[in-house]
Amino acid sequence: MPGGGPEMDDYMETLKDEEDALWENVECNRHMLSRYINPAKLTPYLRQCKVIDEQDEDEVLNAPMLPSKINRAGRLLDILHTKGQRGYVVFLESLEFYYPELYKLVTGKEPTRRFSTIVVEEGHEGLTHFLMNEVIKLQQQMKAKDLQRCELLARLRQLEDEKKQMTLTRVELLTFQERYYKMKEERDSYNDELVKVKDDNYNLAMRYAQLSEEKNMAVMRSRDLQLEIDQLKHRLNKMEEECKLERNQSLKLKNDIENRPKKEQVLELERENEMLKTKNQELQSIIQAGKRSLPDSDKAILDILEHDRKEALEDRQELVNRIYNLQEEARQAEELRDKYLEEKEDLELKCSTLGKDCEMYKHRMNTVMLQLEEVERERDQAFHSRDEAQTQYSQCLIEKDKYRKQIRELEEKNDEMRIEMVRREACIVNLESKLRRLSKDSNNLDQSLPRNLPVTIISQDFGDASPRTNGQEADDSSTSEESPEDSKYFLPYHPPQRRMNLKGIQLQRAKS
C-alpha cells in the first residue's frame, strides 16, 4: 500500500489531465453553448442521470443573480465542470439528445442517441419513463405552439383585415386629398384670375382717368384759346370803332377846312374895312368942321342928330352885343352839340362793343353748352356701355358659378359613389376574411389534438420509441430542437415537474 501511493497520485493526475482536456473543448465553445442552450431543457435529463440535484437545479433556474438565459447556462456549465468526467459525459449526452448541432460542434462527431448513462443509472424502465415524459412534454409544447400558431394566424388575419381596411381608408383619404388639391388648384386659379381682372380693371381705370385728364386739359386749352380769340375780336371791334371815330373827325375837319373863306376874300374885306374906317374919319372931320361953321339952329339939329346917332349907336351896340352873345351862345351850343355828338359816338361805340361782347359771350355760352351736351352725351354713352359690360360680366359670372356648381355637385356625387364603392369593397373584403377565418377555424378544430390522450396510444408510441432511437435521429431532433426563430415568436414553456403513473402502461404491456 505505501508503495502504491505514487502510482495512485500519477493516476489521479492523469485523470485530472484527461478531464481538463475534455472540458477544454467545452470551454472553447462556451460562448456558443451559453448563447443557445436552454438550461430548463437540460436539467431534467441531468437530474435523471443524478449529475445534479434539486438544489443545483433551483440555483440554475431560479437564482435572482442569474437574470438572463446566458448567465444560467454559464452557471450550469460551471456546476457540471465540478462534476468531473461524469458531468462531461452526461452533458454531451444531453447535447446529443437536445442540441445535435452543438454536440457536433463540441465533439466533431455525429449524434447517435445511445443514452448509456441513464440506462446504467435507471435501467430501461427509467429510460422509458424519461422518454415518455419527454414525449408528453413535446406534445404539450407542440399543442402550445399550435395554439400560439393559431392565435398568430388569427392575429395575422386580423392584421391583414386591418391592413385592407387601412388601405381602403388610405384610398378614401387619397380621394379626399386629391379632391382637396383640386379644389385648392381651382381656388388658386380663381385667385389668379381675380387678381388679373383687378389689374385689368385698375389699368382701365388709370387709362380712363388719364384720358379724362387729357380731355379736361384739352377742353381747358380750347376754352383759353376761345377766350383769347374773343379778346382779340373785342380788341378788333374796339379798334374798328376808334378808326371809324377818327375817320368821322377827319371828315369834319376836312369839311371845315373846305368851308373856310379864301385869302383873297379876307384881304378884300380888310380893304373894305380900311376904306370904311377912312371914310368914317373923313366924315367925322367934316362934321367937326361943320359944327364950327354952322348956326345955332343947325347946331341944335346936329345935337339932336348926334344924340339920335348916339342912341342909334347905343342901340346898335346893344344889338351887336346881343348878336355877339347870341353868337357866343350859338358857339357854345355848337360846342355842346359837338361834345354831345362825340359822347353819342362814344356811347354808340361802347354800345356796339357791348353788343359784340354780348354776342361773343352768347356764342361762347352756346359753345360751352354744346360742349357740355357733348360731354353729357359721352358720359351717358359711357355709363350705358359700362352698365352693359357689367350686366354681361355679371351674367357670365352667374353662368360660370352655375356651371361650377354643377361640376362641383357632379364631382361630389362621383366622390360619394367612389367612397360608397370603396366601403362596399371593404365590406366584401371583411365578409370574405370572416368566411375564410371561419373555414380555417373549423379546419383547425378538426385537426387539433385532444387534450387527454388514451393510455393505449401512449403505450403504442413508446413501443415504437426504441427503433426510432436507432434510425431516425433527424426526426427526433426536428421535433425536440428549438430554433432561434421559434424563440422569437413563441413563449418558452415550462412543464410541471411531476412523475407519471406507469401502472397503466405496465398492465397494457403485460396484456400485449
Score class of each variant (00 low, 15 high):
residue 76 L to F: 05
residue 37 I to M: 06
residue 48 Q to M: 04
residue 74 G to D: 06
residue 111 P to W: 04
residue 62 N to W: 12
residue 103 Y to R: 04
residue 77 L to K: 03
residue 128 T to P: 12
residue 135 V to A: 05
residue 141 Q to V: 12
residue 90 V to A: 07
residue 123 G to M: 15
residue 64 P to N: 05
residue 19 E to L: 12
residue 6 P to C: 11
residue 70 I to C: 09
residue 12 M to F: 12
residue 23 W to C: 09
residue 49 C to E: 15
residue 126 G to K: 13
residue 140 Q to H: 09
residue 54 E to M: 11
residue 113 R to A: 12
residue 17 D to H: 11
residue 112 T to F: 08
residue 40 A to M: 04
residue 6 P to W: 12
residue 16 K to Q: 11
residue 50 K to G: 12
residue 118 I to W: 15
residue 66 L to G: 00
residue 61 L to H: 02
residue 20 D to F: 09
residue 46 L to F: 13
residue 4 G to I: 12
residue 122 E to H: 07
residue 61 L to P: 00
residue 42 L to Q: 00
residue 110 E to H: 06
residue 130 F to G: 14
residue 146 D to F: 11
residue 37 I to S: 00
residue 14 T to D: 14
residue 116 S to Q: 13
residue 44 P to S: 06
residue 111 P to C: 06
residue 39 P to S: 05
residue 40 A to S: 09
residue 21 A to R: 13
residue 98 Y to I: 07
residue 63 A to K: 01
residue 70 I to Q: 07
residue 109 K to V: 06
residue 91 F to E: 06
residue 39 P to I: 06
residue 130 F to A: 14
residue 13 E to G: 13
residue 47 R to N: 02
residue 31 H to V: 14
residue 72 R to L: 00
residue 59 E to H: 07
residue 50 K to C: 07
residue 63 A to G: 11
residue 90 V to F: 15
residue 125 E to T: 11
residue 39 P to W: 01
residue 55 Q to W: 10
residue 70 I to H: 04
residue 48 Q to D: 04
residue 98 Y to T: 15
residue 35 R to H: 07
residue 134 E to W: 15
residue 105 L to R: 11
residue 38 N to I: 02
residue 25 N to I: 09
residue 40 A to F: 08
residue 143 K to P: 07
residue 29 N to S: 01
residue 61 L to W: 05
residue 128 T to M: 14
residue 19 E to Q: 13
residue 132 M to R: 07
residue 139 Q to G: 15
residue 106 V to C: 15
residue 54 E to H: 06
residue 67 P to N: 07
residue 78 D to R: 02
residue 90 V to L: 14
residue 121 E to V: 06
residue 20 D to W: 09
residue 89 V to Q: 14
residue 33 L to N: 00
residue 27 E to R: 00
residue 51 V to N: 03
residue 31 H to K: 03
residue 70 I to Y: 11
residue 62 N to S: 07
residue 89 V to W: 07
residue 76 L to W: 01
residue 29 N to Q: 07
residue 41 K to G: 04
residue 34 S to H: 01
residue 51 V to P: 02
residue 57 E to G: 00
residue 136 I to G: 11
residue 68 S to Q: 01
residue 4 G to Y: 13
residue 92 L to D: 15
residue 32 M to E: 08
residue 82 T to C: 11
residue 56 D to E: 03
residue 54 E to T: 06
residue 118 I to N: 14
residue 32 M to R: 08
residue 15 L to H: 12
residue 39 P to E: 01
residue 138 L to K: 09
residue 73 A to E: 00
residue 20 D to G: 11
residue 118 I to E: 12
residue 51 V to R: 02
residue 141 Q to Y: 15
residue 91 F to I: 05
residue 70 I to A: 11
residue 126 G to V: 09
residue 80 L to F: 01
residue 145 K to V: 10
residue 102 L to A: 08
residue 53 D to C: 08
residue 18 E to P: 12
residue 41 K to W: 08
residue 99 Y to R: 03
residue 129 H to C: 15
residue 75 R to L: 04
residue 68 S to F: 05
residue 48 Q to R: 03
residue 18 E to R: 13
residue 112 T to D: 15
residue 123 G to Q: 15
residue 35 R to A: 04
residue 138 L to G: 15
residue 71 N to L: 05
residue 130 F to M: 15
residue 19 E to Y: 13
residue 75 R to N: 01
residue 68 S to R: 01
residue 33 L to H: 00
residue 145 K to Q: 11
residue 23 W to P: 06
residue 61 L to S: 03
residue 26 V to T: 07
residue 62 N to D: 04
residue 18 E to G: 12
residue 52 I to E: 01
residue 27 E to H: 04
residue 91 F to R: 05
residue 36 Y to D: 02
residue 134 E to C: 06
residue 144 A to K: 10
residue 60 V to K: 00
residue 116 S to I: 04
residue 22 L to S: 14
residue 31 H to N: 13
residue 45 Y to V: 05
residue 146 D to H: 08
residue 6 P to R: 11
residue 10 D to V: 12
residue 66 L to W: 00
residue 95 L to A: 02
residue 30 R to Y: 02
residue 137 K to S: 08
residue 83 K to S: 08
residue 17 D to E: 11
residue 143 K to S: 13
residue 7 E to R: 14
residue 124 H to D: 15
residue 63 A to H: 11
residue 72 R to V: 01
residue 60 V to R: 00
residue 131 L to F: 10
residue 56 D to K: 01
residue 22 L to M: 10
residue 134 E to D: 07
residue 7 E to N: 12
residue 12 M to V: 14
residue 34 S to M: 04
residue 23 W to G: 08
residue 67 P to A: 09
residue 9 D to A: 13
residue 142 M to D: 07
residue 4 G to S: 12
residue 38 N to Y: 06
residue 81 H to R: 10
residue 55 Q to D: 05
residue 101 E to R: 00
residue 82 T to H: 11
residue 107 T to N: 03
residue 66 L to S: 00
residue 45 Y to A: 01
residue 126 G to I: 13
residue 43 T to W: 04
residue 55 Q to C: 07
residue 107 T to I: 06
residue 21 A to Y: 08
residue 54 E to F: 10
residue 136 I to N: 06
residue 51 V to D: 04
residue 15 L to E: 13
residue 68 S to K: 00
residue 141 Q to P: 06
residue 87 G to F: 01
residue 50 K to I: 05
residue 24 E to D: 08
residue 11 Y to A: 13
residue 129 H to L: 13
residue 70 I to G: 00
residue 42 L to I: 09
residue 48 Q to Y: 02
residue 67 P to G: 06
residue 106 V to E: 02
residue 66 L to C: 01
residue 126 G to H: 15
residue 121 E to W: 07
residue 93 E to W: 06
residue 35 R to V: 02
residue 27 E to F: 03
residue 129 H to S: 08
residue 70 I to F: 09
residue 43 T to I: 02
residue 64 P to D: 00
residue 61 L to M: 00
residue 81 H to Y: 05
residue 97 F to N: 07
residue 90 V to K: 10
residue 141 Q to H: 11
residue 87 G to D: 03
residue 39 P to V: 10
residue 71 N to Y: 03
residue 85 Q to S: 08
residue 128 T to H: 13
residue 65 M to Y: 03
residue 33 L to W: 04
residue 18 E to Y: 11
residue 19 E to K: 11
residue 73 A to L: 01
residue 12 M to H: 09
residue 43 T to Q: 00
residue 138 L to V: 14
residue 82 T to S: 11
residue 90 V to S: 09
residue 118 I to F: 07
residue 23 W to R: 07
residue 79 I to D: 02
residue 135 V to K: 05
residue 112 T to S: 14
residue 112 T to Y: 15
residue 21 A to Q: 09
residue 82 T to W: 04
residue 65 M to F: 07
residue 86 R to G: 12
residue 64 P to S: 13
residue 122 E to P: 14
residue 114 R to H: 14
residue 34 S to G: 03
residue 104 K to Y: 08
residue 72 R to Y: 00
residue 142 M to N: 13
residue 101 E to Y: 07
residue 46 L to T: 02
residue 57 E to N: 00
residue 130 F to I: 15
residue 32 M to D: 12
residue 124 H to R: 14
residue 77 L to V: 07
residue 13 E to V: 12
residue 77 L to H: 01
residue 54 E to A: 06
residue 57 E to M: 02
residue 109 K to Q: 07
residue 116 S to L: 06
residue 138 L to H: 08
residue 37 I to V: 06
residue 113 R to W: 05
residue 76 L to G: 02
residue 94 S to H: 00
residue 69 K to R: 15
residue 38 N to V: 03
residue 16 K to Y: 13
residue 87 G to V: 03
residue 134 E to R: 12
residue 108 G to L: 01
residue 145 K to C: 09
residue 39 P to R: 01
residue 20 D to Y: 11
residue 4 G to D: 09
residue 108 G to D: 11
residue 51 V to M: 06
residue 139 Q to E: 09
residue 75 R to H: 05
